[in-house]
């Protein structure tokens, strides 16, 4: 699956821009570079890229304002680059509308995987809603609300099913605790993170080969979860 996309890269460090561009171009993408937020916003408006990679620590403003501003005009996926131990900053960016984040330093493989997931997401969004989904040996039939694993039917409780749907619908994105709790339990329960954690662990027990080392229902420690396939 190698579809060419236009990717906007907003990052003030020229050397980082350089190797990210090299990696993305090697994948066949077209890269637009921007060293400041103002210029970045302008390019996002004019060139209609399919994805933005955004460094949060830019000299001319707060990257989170950039995301908010961007979200007023488009659903363009945003991949945030951020330092470790800046969980609060990441959560703010994700709550503002960013789709995913990468912690510096990051490997090229990881970067390309995230880019691929977000681009795929973008395409499935625009296509008609899928009726079934498959990951590993698990198949989810969204019409009949039936889940099978290695051809055996798996029973989920209503909350487990709602959680699964919320995560599948946001595949490739990081969902903060707050977002998932709001989607599954409603906005009155956004503090009950222990419930969320327990239900995620139920899903892992039912759908993962090794629940202690999950492959699909991934933990973003201190931030939330990501469903990836």
């Amino acid at each position: 699956m190698n579809e060419n996309a236009t990717i906007l890269l907003v990052e003030d460090e020229a050397q980082i821009r350089r190797f990210v561009r090299t990696a993305l171009e090697a994948e066949g993408h077209h890269v637009l570079e921007s060293g400041t937020l103002t210029h970045g916003l302008e390019q996002a408006r004019q060139s209609k890229p399919q994805l933005t990679i955004l460094d949060l620590g830019l000299p001319d403003g707060d990257g989170i304002d950039f995301i908010r501003e961007l979200r007023t005009q488009s659903e363009l996926p945003v991949l945030v680059l951020s330092a470790r131990s800046a969980e609060a900053e990441k959560i703010r960016a994700l709550d503002a509308g960013a789709d995913d984040y990468l912690t510096k330093p990051f490997s090229i493989g990881e970067l390309l995987a995230r880019v691929r997931a977000l681009l795929r997401r973008n395409r499935t969004d625009s296509a008609a809603a899928e009726t079934s989904l498959r990951f590993g040996t698990v198949e989810v039939d969204l019409v009949r609300r039936q889940i099978t694993r290695s051809s055996h039917i798996v029973h989920l409780t209503p909350i487990e099913y709602r959680l699964l749907c919320a995560m599948l619908a946001n595949a490739g994105r990081v969902m903060t605790y707050r977002n998932l709790l709001r989607a599954v339990w409603g906005s009155a329960h956004i503090e009950s993170t222990h419930y969320l954690r327990i239900y995620v662990s139920h899903l892992r027990q039912k759908l993962e080969d090794d629940p202690a080392q999950p492959k699909y229902f991934l933990t973003e420690t201190g931030i939330g979860y990501r469903f990836q396939y």
Binding site: E13, I108, G109
Partner: peptide, 21 residues
């Protein structure tokens, strides 16, 4: 310190990784 050391490290790591590909 965290910012100023991380940036060159990110570059170094990313470039080495690019070359390794």
């Amino acid at each position: 310190l965290s910012h100023d050391i991380r940036s060159p490290l990110t570059v170094l790591y990313g470039m080495a990784d690019t070359l390794a590909q």
